[in-house]
Design a protein around this nucleic acid. Structure first.
Lengths: 368, 368
DNA sequence: CCTGTGCGCTAAATCGCATTAGCGCGCTGT
DNA sequence: ACAGCGCGCTAATGCGATTTAGCGCACAGG
């Protein structure tokens, strides 16, 4: 056999199964059976198989997935509808995970974005069903409570990073925010912190959290639970409508100036932490030595800060994967509203110091 | 008419065009013509049209796109294949723009990711063609030279954020990096800077740029062109293999310690700038007052830094849009390798100060 | 009265594959 | 010798739309 000569195959008409069959001198049926791996089952001889495979090779035949989908009713495609893939940049990892899981199972993803528009959401879900998707993942970019649009009930679906407000049969995949809160609290406890601990992002005097944010509520609950178990109480908190650096800066400045002792901050995301770092520096203090900081999300910026920011990571990649896995495992009436929680791993860096490391420790005994 | 009672339509079998036709008492053909807006052309009476539309309304008919695709050969779907959507988080805006442009033209996006694997790339492109996509956008997450995989030639396609190494018929959409370089340089010139200007990210003594990076080459070329026109020369540069904060920090530290006067830094991306800020602070200097900084990309972090980082933005959203527009405007043999450049807008913040603002200006006269 | 023409609609083929039902052949058993 | 039974394969149908070819009817013209 000579060296495989490869001409740049022109954009010519595609080869069909019928042509392959004709070339191999068999029926289309036989070719179909062989190519779908049902040779044994259909007792097609090995010779015939060889002829068909050769014809496939020679013609460069590729099955037309559209046609197959029409016949079988499923397109090996999954719809991924999100409110905002792009506006929350690093949540692209949700898609990444979903993409990987889908590819492993021979699926592609059809994606669309609603930008929070409910009508558009319904429309897009229907457009996807029109394309015979096997199922739909409805993703939110931050963990929140959402309404399940009716259109979603027309077939298999999964909520990603969202919980239904009402009872529903649609399963959810979300990060385990409560455990993340406990994890952050335990970390501070282990470093010896028992007082002068503030949360930045949510209020505690009257509990106050950004609207609809599951993350805020569950993280706070987790934090208070873990502290409560050790008899420790938060010294205060600062509510923020959105968790951006500027708000974090102002809030932290407020905390640092008006209270007595500030030993640790639990910032509700990394952007807030960025602001907190700036405020700590402005106050002539040093993160870790004077004020410990724990954060959530683990965005890239967490590793860019100095000292490196210890953060409980949002497992976006894993969430994306899990959503696809749950979706594809769904059959019929199963699923039934189950909530799958994915662990949020702790990324330890240098922003937490031992209690009293930077100052003498007058308050240590006073605790409890 | 009573209030529209809405029962949660069960996941029942879909209504087909045949059923609609039967219900309206007309042939499938007629129904098809009406629904595809060819009523006038086919001289279908208005009454018949009304009957059909009513039947559609009553049954909630939605056309099966798969079937239509089989017949027409196109699925109103565009393939979007990227090397890494997710690893470079904020480039998700590429997808965002593409998504918007596609939706405006009634298309959905089928996406996949190669993670740089050429074989996988070919495979995915073929998988998409198997699904009868109208065309394929092959996107790169940073502007670079790339090989056009053969599979791409099997139909319409566009390179996004990438240039072909060889002559090709595939058009490209990329940011106008050279103009961005000129823009950054002009900004410094306007602020009175004429010396003590360093680039961070690429070398200048022997020119040295990260492998395959169009951005690095063209930005540098633009910078030198704009400066050259005014008789200004770069005082030096620091090559970095990858543009991350740590490298930026080290490089800037080197520049600040070993040279005489450092008045301005042109950092080749925002991450490098993050490191540069830290190094400037460590040296007891202040950004803008002592050392001006201009950057590229305009990632979110640019606005988080203090003082805010002036940066020439990568127009990801616009790039994504443009790619889809170019793709859909492609017909047949047109396109033919045209390179579309999208303007990179300047985002002015506070990191550039007037030359000599922070010190007395002994060197000012010496220039030229 | 017959033919021709245009109007308004329909029958039927088609897209490419999966799948059900069944065909012809050779072998076995009585 | 003939029925019965697998074996190895094929004919034909259907998925749900689009589209080509053409049908019947009413009306006009000769």
């Amino acid at each position: 056999m000579p060296d495989g000569e490869k001409e740049p195959r022109a954009a010519t008409r595609r080869v069909t199964l019928a042509e392959v069959a004709r070339r191999a001198g068999v029926s289309q049926t036989t070719a179909s059976f062989v190519l779908s791996g049902r040779r044994e089952e259909m007792r097609i001889s090995a010779q015939v198989e060889a002829k068909i495979l050769r014809a496939v090779e020679e013609t460069g035949y590729r099955p037309n997935v559209v046609s197959r989908s029409l016949r079988t009713g499923s397109s090996h495609t999954i719809g991924f509808v999100s409110d905002t893939v792009a506006t929350t940049p690093f949540a692209g990892h949700l898609i990444w995970g979903a993409l990987d899981a889908a590819r492993e199972q021979g699926r592609l993803l059809l994606i669309a974005e609603t930008e929070g528009d409910a009508e558009l959401e319904t429309q897009l879900v229907e457009t996807m069903r029109d394309r015979q998707v096997e199922g739909i993942v409805l993703a939110s970019m931050y963990t929140r409570w959402a309404n399940v649009p009716r259109a979603l009930l027309g077939g298999p679906s999964v909520l990603l990073n969202a919980l239904s407000k009402k009872e529903t049969s649609v399963p959810s995949v979300i990060p385990d925010e409560a455990e993340a809160g406990r994890c952050a609290a335990r970390l501070l406890l282990e470093a010896g912190h028992r007082e002068g601990i503030y949360v930045v992002g949510v209020g505690v005097d009257p509990v106050r959290t950004p609207k609809g944010s599951v993350a805020a509520c569950e993280r706070l609950a987790g934090i208070e639970e873990a502290f409560g178990r050790e008899g420790v109480r938060l010294s205060g908190g600062a509510f923020l409508g959105d968790w951006q650096p500027h708000g974090g800066y102002e809030a932290t400045r407020g905390i640092l100036s008006s209270r007595k002792q500030v030993r640790a901050l639990i910032c509700f995301n990394d952007r807030v932490s960025v602001g907190a770092y700036q405020a700590v520096a402005d106050a002539g203090l040093e993160v870790a030595r004077d004020v410990s900081v724990v954060s959530f999300d683990d965005e890239p910026v967490a590793s860019w800060l100095r000292p490196g920011l210890t953060s409980v990571a949002l497992p976006h990649y894993e969430l994306g994967r899990k959503a696809i896995e749950v979706l594809l495992a769904l059959d019929g009436a199963s699923g039934s509203g189950k909530v799958h929680r994915v662990e949020m791993p702790l990324r330890v860096r240098e922003s937490v110091g031992r209690s009293g490391a930077g100052l003498d420790r007058p308050a240590r005994r006073a605790a409890k």
